[in-house]
Design a protein around this nucleic acid. Structure first.
Lengths: 310, 310
DNA sequence: TTGTATGCGTTATCAA
DNA sequence: TTGATAACGCATACAA
């Protein structure tokens, strides 16, 4: 050991991987790395992987020019033991490719129906229902859902859950979708929905970023007060949601839990009976109450709700 | 090729790396991945690396329990060809270790004085001076600088530049430092500096996150108007700086430029004459004018400045 | 042009 | 317990 230290010797993992047929490398396949939720999850995953003695290889799938495939090919060439996909990208071929090459696979918030990979999802659908209750308790009457056009399973589940719970109470929901899941899309949706004749008094945004954009437009361009004139809810609990300019009521992604579940599963002894089939995990998104939804009662009109008549 | 496709064959980079004595792996050593500026840079770097046919290995240096060293050891074991350090962590031993093991090294915003690595820095010092001019033009008289206790070279350079330019005009600067470079520290600094007897009417925050926290406190807890009662400038031009709740005047990190310079240098044929000595690169931080600094003149008092009498 | 042997740094196996 | 040897998949040098 002393001699090794003195000579600056380090085991060569390339050679070791060659022998053992396992590299210790885990691929993180992710798009939109710079987004608050994604980068938070990414940070946590890398930390956990390191603690488990593994190392993270980052594959950025932002570019659409086929570099995704190239990047993934790269990963395969390094004989990564596993891949964790946190990209919203619904490209089925990618997951297939990983599996075919004997990688273990973790799908986060992708709700894929494939067998083999570990799937970690949230109770998005039910969360939508909880927002309806909150809005109704606040005395809101015109509910709206602001979504992106990304069409990610989790985003759509939130929308469906929200709409379903509302119509169970006899309420209709104004649904609009636009662009990508960011601040800019939120402000576009805000302008569109707030200029419409039937202006909503409560909006559930599929994402905190959308909510921030929506709120800023509502306040600064339409002079509305949140939560007095307009109640807003988001999803993800990104750091900005807690900033006092927003104080957004939202749902927390259980990032720590997601990360440790994923890494724990990867650290288990790989069962050799063909492809180990993992039980899908559904985590609960805790509702974080802040100040973008009124506690009780409306601005002036309607304090009792649930009549369904418009 | 057809046969290879059919058999699902991929070159084994572990074996290739063993032979060629270069792995194609580049380590990204980064702390606070979830921070807007860091994650943006990270995203860009990975993209560029992928385009250059290399692959990024992410080392998260957040934990203080010595896992940094362990992580770096990991990287060495994989025989990474190079490391890019975007961590503010001023740990000299890390860079030494990389160099000793024949890695090429890129230091971003670290202003280290070592020979060998490529150093990419901004003109932080000069930027500080530009803010003073802007504040003076706006008619501000009590200048302040809000910094974190991190003591990163680039942060300190901004502070020194700001203070130097101010005292060249005969103005003193209130300097406060607290905690880490985030929103929370910004709000603490805001509370501290705005309750002081000598309340500033202009503050340069070392970071956009600090600025956001400072602004929120100023507005929501002290009822101040930005930029009328208080001018604010930040640094980094994170996405949130452009959100209409902040409209922060700040300096843009030339992220695309930084990333391509770094990757280009790594892609050059490695000169074999010992350790190639790279010319340090200093990039200009462009000032992004938004709405947190008044255009001209003060609120009411003082329209001419530069008298130095307090 | 095509084929064969050798070495890269490990680890696993088998013989001493 | 210790020491020699083969094999992992690729690249190179040399022979055919």
């Amino acid at each position: 050991m002393l001699a090794a230290e003195e000579l600056g010797y380090h085991v060569n993992h390339l050679a070791r991987g060659l022998m053992r047929n396992e590299s210790g490398i885990v691929c993180l396949i992710v798009s939109e790395v710079a987004t608050p939720y994604r980068s938070a999850l990414l940070g946590r995953l890398t930390l956990n992987l390191q603690n488990a003695g593994k190392v993270a290889m980052l594959i950025n799938t932002d570019r659409s020019d086929g570099s995704v495939d190239r990047a993934l090919q790269q990963a395969l060439r390094y004989r990564a033991d596993a891949s964790i996909i946190l990209s919203g990208l619904p490209d089925r071929s990618i997951t297939q490719l990983c599996l075919r090459n004997g990688q273990r696979l973790v799908l986060i918030n992708r709700d894929d129906d494939q067998q083999g990979p570990l799937r970690i999802n949230l109770d998005d659908h039910e969360a939508g229902g909880r927002v309806v209750s909150a809005f109704v308790r606040a005395g809101c009457r015109r509910l709206a859902f602001a979504n992106s056009e990304a069409g990610t399973p989790s985003l759509m589940a939130r929308e469906r859950g929200f709409v379903a719970a509302a119509s169970a109470l006899g309420m209709e929901v104004i649904v609009e979708r636009h662009g990508w899941t960011g601040y800019e899309a939120g402000s576009v949706l805000g302008r569109r929905m707030l200029t419409a004749k039937e202006r909503p008094d409560a909006v559930f945004c599929a994402t905190d970023l959308l909510a921030c954009g929506f709120m800023d437009v509502a306040r600064h361009q339409f002079g509305l007060s949140v939560p007095n004139d307009l109640c807003v809810a988001g999803f993800d609990d990104i750091e900005q949601a807690s900033w006092s300019s927003y104080a957004l009521t939202t749902f927390a992604q259980p990032i720590a839990d997601i990360a440790s579940r994923a890494v724990d599963w990867l650290s288990e002894m790989p069962q050799e009976d063909g492809h180990a089939v993992a039980q899908p995990i559904t985590l609960k998104a805790e509702m974080i109450w802040r100040n973008s939804i009124r506690a009780k009662g409306g601005t002036g009109n309607a304090s009792t709700v649930i009549d369904g008549s418009e």
